[in-house]
Design a protein around this nucleic acid. Sequence first.
DNA 1: GATGAATGAGCTTTCATTCAT
DNA 2: AATGAATGAAAGCTCATTCAT
Lengths: 190, 190, 190, 190
Amino acid sequence: MKITDKKKAILDTALTLFVEQGFHATSTAAIARGAGVATGTLFHHFPSKEALMEYLFLNIKQEFADAIKSSMNPDDGLKANARNLWFSALEWAANNPVKQHFFQLYSLSPTIATELREQAMNSILGFITDLIKQGQAKAMIADYPIKLMQDNCHGQFLAATRYFSDNPDYWHIDSHKQASFKLFWHAIAS
Amino acid sequence: MKITDKKKAILDTALTLFVEQGFHATSTAAIARGAGVATGTLFHHFPSKEALMEYLFLNIKQEFADAIKSSMNPDDGLKANARNLWFSALEWAANNPVKQHFFQLYSLSPTIATELREQAMNSILGFITDLIKQGQAKAMIADYPIKLMQDNCHGQFLAATRYFSDNPDYWHIDSHKQASFKLFWHAIAS
Amino acid sequence: MKITDKKKAILDTALTLFVEQGFHATSTAAIARGAGVATGTLFHHFPSKEALMEYLFLNIKQEFADAIKSSMNPDDGLKANARNLWFSALEWAANNPVKQHFFQLYSLSPTIATELREQAMNSILGFITDLIKQGQAKAMIADYPIKLMQDNCHGQFLAATRYFSDNPDYWHIDSHKQASFKLFWHAIAS
Amino acid sequence: MKITDKKKAILDTALTLFVEQGFHATSTAAIARGAGVATGTLFHHFPSKEALMEYLFLNIKQEFADAIKSSMNPDDGLKANARNLWFSALEWAANNPVKQHFFQLYSLSPTIATELREQAMNSILGFITDLIKQGQAKAMIADYPIKLMQDNCHGQFLAATRYFSDNPDYWHIDSHKQASFKLFWHAIAS
DNA sequence: GATGAATGAGCTTTCATTCAT
DNA sequence: AATGAATGAAAGCTCATTCAT
């Protein structure tokens, strides 16, 4: 299914405006204006403003998942792959500042329906859950309830990227990246 | 200066509705109706809907800070006091489910102006920062940048209470509370 | 660019209501109702109630200017043309009672921003200023500061139409029209 | 009937604010605040905001009338007394800029009920009408309908003070005052 | 006389969405 | 597919006025 230029323009503008002004403060008229299309056009491609947001949310999550999944190396051990994931996630965030900001704003926001957030967590990012379970089976990761582990990982990742967003100079300094990974890993390692 | 009954009723209703429906989905008319006052009365006590939200935010943060601060014991060591704080924070959250939900929704939300969030973090919860610094001086806590430590602690606490909110049966089961504390402590301990 | 029927209806209704009830006493809802359109439609065509008023003001001034300008005759002398203008202005006022009333109410009112009133005076009615200057150059009109002359002419015209509005029977009686012109002309003739 | 300090403060503040911001843009709360009294106090002294405005209007008109009436000299002829009145009126306006501005804004405004404006014109400023009639009887003043003469005088006076308000440097320059009087007098002299 | 919390109808403006073209 | 004028419910907020103290 080829995305038309207009649909693409709407998505790009919506992403930017949702991040710059927030979902509620962004009118569909403003999105259409920014995208250079008529107000009605938006509703040809998306049944509602909410649906547009959901489309954005799932697509960006997927893009993120694809990006970091490719950093995993079957030859590496568990901790090495955890590091691979953590560093490639930080790199993706550094290279996609607007989408990273989008994550900060909406990953936990009630703007996104709870089911959708869970769906993203489970199906798109499910391979991370798998990894944790493997680590627990090998007694390399603390054997606490999987939901607790998921929430903790998610929370620490958002905290880390928030730190780097607030201090953009550190995105590419190794010591800061290492520090953030160590906090994360020490928490979950058993 | 005694807070009028009407003002109290407005605050209580606003807290409930902001949590149940979200800030934007809650109209000032609904707050007034719920509080049993006229729409004008809300604006007699608060210059705007935003100001009402800010008042709620700062007051609840302060109440939380006061509650957990009193759990600290000067005779206890650093780790013991960290545990005191963590457990009393969980207890406060368990006993104040609406306010805890309010934290989940608005602690990091752009609905609250950045400066206000920082003010809350620095002045109201500044004693936690002090504690981290003491731990770093004694080499008991990892010597990473203080902002990174703050963000990590905050992120882990929100993750933990999110876990318990999603699984309310566990609020009072010691093993779950211990698990959440261990994740937290292992992350930051050096 | 054709003015939509709805836009025209809004303008007509607004003119009538602003004159009948005053600007502040006229709600945008009442204008929309009177024009037979939805409240939103008004704001689709005009960004604000003030902008609607400004549009009306400038358009009516322009219409008035066009009407009286066409009464001038290059073959006539200065005084004859002054009389042409004065009588055609009275005629326009008699034939457009609502717009004439609008002038009475808003020509000097702070409801209209000062800059707008000056813009109307200078660009739309600038040809009158030119005429006064020609008369002064020919020593047929008193050589007082041009601003004083402008204000005096404007003031006398408003006074005259106020007189006729209060006594509508006189609009078409020549002696009254002549009297009003003589007061005007004797004031400014040198 | 002695005017209490609070009532005086309310009147002073209302005058200033009505002139600075306009009648509708001035809230009774703002008047009370500016006067240093409670909102309820205003309504102890005046039954409504309109009544406060009317009180101001009539009192200032009366003060103006008293001021210029005292400039008349029974020993002077008609034209001399007309000049006395005109110059003392300009002087009063120059010395009472706020009240003068109040005249500009409200003398013809629909904010003031028509009856009230006519009452002021007839009873407070009736001596001017008398003067015009005397002049007409002596054939010194053009014998046009008295209402036309009233309106013309009023219109010219407002035009003159508007000119001086816009060019405050000229208030005390004799040539400008003389010019404004000559325009006025030539209009009505027969 | 003075206070100021409380009122609630009313205001202007916004905006997601529709639909005839 | 694309347009943009039109919709109308709903929003946040104002404000003259009242009244118990």
